[in-house]
Nucleic acid binder design. Sequence first.
RNA 1: CGGGGAGUAGCUCAGUCCGGCAGAGCACUGGCUUUGGGAGCCAGGGGCCGCGGGUUCAAAUCCCGCCUCCCCGACCA
Length: 366
Amino acid sequence: MGNGTRLTPQSEDFSAWYNEIVQQAEMASHSPVRGCMVIRPYGYRIWELMQAGLDGMFKATGHENAYFPLFLPKSALDREAEHVEGFAPETAIVTHAGRVELDEPLVVRPTSEAIIWPILRDWIHSYRDLPVLLNQWVNVVRWEKRTRPFLRTTEFLWQEGHTAHQSEEEAEEETRRMLGVYRTFMEDWMAMPVITGLKTDSERFAGAIRTYALEALMRDNKALQAGTSHNLGQNFARAFDVRYQTEDGEHVYVWSTSWGVSTRLIGGLIMAHGDDVGLVLPPRLAPHQAVIVPIWRNDDQRGTVLEAGERVRAALEEAGMRVHLDGREGVNPGAKYYDWERKGVPLRLEIGPRDVESGSVMAVRR
RNA sequence: CGGGGAGUAGCUCAGUCCGGCAGAGCACUGGCUUUGGGAGCCAGGGGCCGCGGGUUCAAAUCCCGCCUCCCCGACCA
């Protein structure tokens, strides 16, 4: 922090603005491997807050978290025809363990249907075992040709929900329910306007019968696909032979769904709200909901002002706010204002000697 | 993957054409003075000049290969 580098205005070059704010707000930085990024603490904190919000909503709708492995046998990916066609070109494949060539290559998951369904086959026997409502928070790898921080990275973090149901109607209901959960999160937590709808056949998830997507409006007037919810029909059940016995004793294929949102949401958050000054973060997802900037001229004032700042911080934290007191020495208040505006902190509280005397604070909204 | 641009200190870049001591501003460290919108002075620290090879007495600079980033396109859940 503390550098005075200017941001390219959005109106001049939105892409340049985006790349600069990702660096300057300390959201992410590059790594030595193509398309892979380091998510820095400030960016990761936003992800943690997103995870907490979404995870609560998933649990409230009956889902449980689990963890399935990073690797899948290449033969498993090959089981569903459209699925393999869609994902094969962008998978990373492990062929060696040390110097020894593996008998069967391992695919690094681009998504986990082909790992999860062979397992669910063993878990599902009876209609009493349904529905299965799972979610996992993991990393996945897709070798995309062109990458951008948060928006399309080679490795990214996401959650993927996977469910199994007795009927087509139930699966469709689940697909739309989770689409609705995403909409609620994007509107109420991210303050990001979205349009939901059905993807065309060519844009459908490889292996799905229907894909619903949320398209979010960015400040360059472009749409960003911010999340998807898929009705997989019986495609994966057939490919992995997952059947259950009905009350009538019949053996029938389950109906399934999958749905996901990723760290791309952070890119969406940046582009939905950020301006020429920097990030603008919605309070529910801001690492610091308020920042206190103390102002002093001498050691006496420094003591009383910092003490007042601590009191204000304690009171606001007591009320449930995430508050940061910026007590850095040798940095002018003005420089601190620029820093925190660039980082999108929703509320700034300035406390100087005059404020302490009058028992007030100066509050400025981002 | 095709076309174009770029890679030198943490950041932005000069130096490369025309080979000859590794540079600037900001940032960082220490000291003093400052502090209500990006502070000043003084003194310092910091380099695999993207990586590998070649040419040369000598390479940041010339040649070859590769990697990474950015833009346009194609591709894409």
